[in-house]
Simulated assay, not measured.
Amino acid sequence: MPHTPAPLTGAPSSPGNAYDVLAELTAVLAEHGITLPSLELDRATLTSPYTEPLIELGRCNLDTARAISAALGR
Rank of each mutant, 00 (worst) to 15 (best):
P12S: 13
E52Y: 02
R66F: 11
T47R: 06
M1Q: 10
G10Y: 03
C60K: 00
N17E: 09
P2K: 11
E52D: 14
G73K: 02
E56W: 04
T26V: 02
E24H: 09
A27P: 00
A71P: 04
L36A: 07
T47K: 03
L29Y: 02
A67I: 02
R59D: 00
I55L: 13
I34P: 08
P37V: 04
T35L: 11
D20Q: 09
P37R: 07
L41A: 14
A65C: 04
I34A: 14
R43Q: 15
A23V: 01
V28Q: 12
T51D: 12
L57Y: 12
A44V: 14
H3E: 05
P2T: 03
T26H: 07
L22H: 01
S48T: 07
A27W: 04
A27L: 05
A18S: 04
T4S: 12
T45R: 02
A23T: 09
P15L: 08
A67F: 03
T35G: 02
P15Y: 10
L29R: 00
E31V: 07
A71W: 00
P2F: 08
H32M: 01
V28F: 01
L54E: 14
A70T: 11
L57M: 13
D20R: 11
H3R: 13
L57P: 01
V28A: 13
D42S: 06
A18K: 01
A18L: 04
L36H: 01
A44L: 10
D42Y: 06
L46W: 03
E56Y: 09
V28M: 04
P12F: 07
Y50D: 12
R43G: 11
G33I: 05
S69V: 06
P2M: 07
L72R: 09
A6E: 14
R43E: 15
S13R: 13
L72N: 09
L39T: 01
P15A: 11
P15E: 06
T47P: 00
P37M: 07
T47I: 13
P5F: 03
P53L: 10
H3P: 01
A30T: 07
R66G: 09
A30C: 00
V28T: 13
D20L: 13
A6H: 06
E24N: 05
R66Y: 13
R66K: 12
E40S: 14
L22F: 11
L41S: 07
P12K: 12
L54R: 15
A65E: 12
T47Q: 12
P15V: 05
L39S: 02
Y19G: 04
S69L: 15
L54Y: 07
T51S: 15
S14E: 00
T64A: 14
T9C: 08
E56A: 10
D42G: 03
L54C: 09
L8C: 08
A18C: 06
P49S: 15
D63L: 05
T51C: 12
G10R: 03
T64C: 11
G33M: 03
G73W: 05
R74V: 13
